[in-house]
């Protein structure tokens, strides 16, 4: 059987809880496995079923629920934290999870039809100016 394992990640701004996600999955009655995690849930099952479940989950909070697939199957001892320390991707997931509140706000603007603005990134100051500042400090 071809499996798909998928991380469901709830944005820090969302009111949805991991428990609601798992209950929703159970209530759908599809043949997928779901496991609650600190950032949301992990789904596993045939790709088409996982995709259908994902659509339903996104509907709970379209801008608050994010997902990506995961390489290793659920509970794989090769990637178990107790055995190997954190998974290599875990710290990135942690950091990206924190940034989801920013992405959520960005999505709001994008879906509203806002246009991107050019942000000026200041250039490095000329060496002469730096020299002048140094002399002033002296």
């Amino acid at each position: 059987m071809v499996r798909e394992t998928r991380l469901v990640v709830i944005s820090p701004l969302s009111e949805i809880t991991p428990d609601q996600i798992t209950r929703k999955v159970h209530s759908l009655g599809y043949e997928v496995t779901v496991k609650e995690t600190c950032y949301g849930a992990v789904l596993e099952g045939p790709p088409e079923t996982v995709s259908k479940v994902m659509q339903e989950l996104r509907a709970l909070d379209p801008l608050g629920i994010y997902s990506k697939i995961r390489g290793f199957p659920l509970g794989d001892p090769k990637r178990c934290r107790a055995q190997h320390g954190s998974r290599p991707g875990f710290s990135q997931l942690q950091t990206e999870w924190q940034s989801l509140s920013l992405v959520e706000k960005g999505l709001e603007c994008a879906l509203r039809g806002d246009k991107a603005e050019d942000i000026d990134i200041p250039e490095r100051i000329p060496v002469k100016d730096l020299q002048r500042f140094c002399e002033e400090v002296e």
């Binding site: 940034s99 920013l102 992405v103 706000k105 960005g106 603007c109 806002d114 991107a116 603005e117 942000i119």
Partner: peptide
Amino acid sequence: YPRTEEDARNMVI
């Protein structure tokens, strides 16, 4: 990678 709300807004758009 976005650091501020403004960055994120521009990035997503």
